[in-house]
Amino acid sequence: MVVGGGIAGIQASLDLADLGYLVYLVENLPAIGGTMAQLDKTFPTLDCAM
């Protein structure tokens, strides 16, 4: 079980799932994404955060 669906929780869930574990990803809000989903671009490459 991963508690929190921001970038850390998403990454942990994907890696666990790819390793062959069944993962429950529990998120408090209606959608996963966390703070990173609110960012416009990321430092230092100015890639779109989405």
Binding site: G5, A17, L22, L29
Partner: peptide, 15 residues
């Protein structure tokens, strides 16, 4: 994450 067969997302939820 939404599509992975091994991930069950439980959103709007708390432990």
């Amino acid at each position: 994450s939404g599509r992975h067969p091994n991930i069950k997302i439980i959103s709007n939820a708390e432990v």
